[in-house]
């Protein structure tokens, strides 16, 4: 719906919106609703004529010829159901014109649904933004969830910071020039403000961005693991061991896709540390820095998202060399043997 008004309408506005009995879509005004019904539900398939209603209806002493009458008279056909309607609303027994004719119980149901959606959406918004409900001015509303930094998060930030400094030190020791974007000391201001790395420009964050997963860290990142952090634990398995725990959205924790322009190598490293702040990662990271092969790490990471993508898609027929007909031709049922002809 092309709603121009920004912000969120209140419940009265929502309930006042006219809506379509057949498909439950709502509209700015009655005129739009009626033209929607004419185009979607009362349009004649055979000649494209747009009728006003399904059967026939008298409104203010004017008889509106409906689609079924039209079909009957013009095309000699019987209309059995309303097109594009929800499964239980296809019937012709109820005569609808705009909002007229909608049974009372259906109206009630609709209103219930609107009210419920409204409150759920409101609650979600409040939880996400920390804004007080409309009309209340003070900070009396629920506090922002994001602002709270748990001990784990603080520790995690520390780990992140350490990782970065360590990486930079190594880089300097090796004489690798630092990328200009990365400040020589400490995390960037935005990283101070939030325990989560900021979204990169054009980064494919999920639509419900405020809903950062509260626990996106693998079990290895439990508080206990942090106690042993100051010294880097001996590196265990390589990165892939941490992969199965990834949340399902792409590039968790701000790991940019390979070749992504906005991501400098050091930022990536920091982001990686943020995702799984175990010793393994840091170790790995440093070894990377030593070797000066940052892009290779990207290569390692890449298979995970693509594999996921492939898994999500199942092809009913997936042989890219041999056609279904060729396979059928080999079945005993269809096979042709030249000798048989003789």
């Amino acid at each position: 719906m092309g709603k121009k008004k920004r912000g969120h309408p209140d419940i009265e506005e929502l309930l006042a919106r006219p809506w379509c009995y057949y498909c439950e879509r709502d509209f700015e005004d009655l005129k739009l609703l009626i033209s929607h019904q004419k185009a979607k539900h009362f349009k004649c398939e055979r000649c494209g004529k747009r009728l006003n209603t399904a059967g026939a209806r008298t409104i203010a002493n004017v008889i509106f010829i409906g689609l079924s009458v039209h079909m009957n008279q013009v095309h000699k056909e019987n209309l059995t159901s309303v097109e594009n309607a929800l499964a239980n609303r296809q019937g012709l027994d109820i005569e609808i014109f705009g909002m007229e004719g909608v049974p009372e119980d259906i109206i009630q149901q609709h209103n219930q649904r609107i009210i419920q959606n409204f409150y759920t959406a409101q609650a979600e918004r409040q939880a996400a933004t920390g804004n007080p409900p409309r009309g209340l001015s003070g900070g009396q509303g629920p506090t922002k969830k994001i602002k709270i930094e748990t001990p784990e998060e603080i520790k995690k930030r520390l780990a992140e910071h350490r990782a970065k400094v360590a990486a930079q030190k190594e880089a300097i020791a090796n004489g690798t020039p630092l990328p200009v974007v990365a400040p020589a000391n400490g995390p960037s201001p935005s990283q101070v403000a939030s325990p989560f790395p900021p979204p990169q420009p054009g980064f494919p964050y999920p639509a419900g961005a405020p809903a950062y997963p509260p626990v996106a860290y693998p079990p290895g990142a439990a508080p206990g693991a942090f106690g042993s952090l100051p010294a880097r634990p001996p590196s265990g398995g390589p990165i892939p061991s941490a992969l199965p725990q990834r949340p399902s959205y792409p590039y968790p924790g701000g790991v940019a896709p390979p070749g992504f322009p906005g991501a400098s190598p050091v930022d990536e490293s920091a982001a990686n540390a943020g995702r799984a702040p175990g010793g393994d990662d840091i170790d790995q990271l440093i070894r990377m820095a030593e070797a000066g092969i940052k892009p290779a790490k990207n290569g390692d990471e890449q298979p995970a998202p693509t594999e996921k993508k492939k898994k999500g898609m199942r092809m009913v027929y997936d042989d890219t060399e041999v056609s279904p007909e060729e396979k059928m031709a080999l079945l005993p049922r269809y096979r042709w043997v030249e000798e048989a002809a003789a």
């Binding site: 279904p324 079945l331 049922r333």
Partner: peptide, 25 residues
């Protein structure tokens, strides 16, 4: 439809031909 992994296929009894008369537009 013939799908990946089918070892046996038959369209027997499930093959039909429909004809749709199209409206003018």
């Amino acid at each position: 439809g013939f799908e990946t992994g089918m070892e046996d296929y038959t369209g027997q009894g499930r093959t039909r031909v429909f004809v749709r008369e199209l409206g003018e537009t």
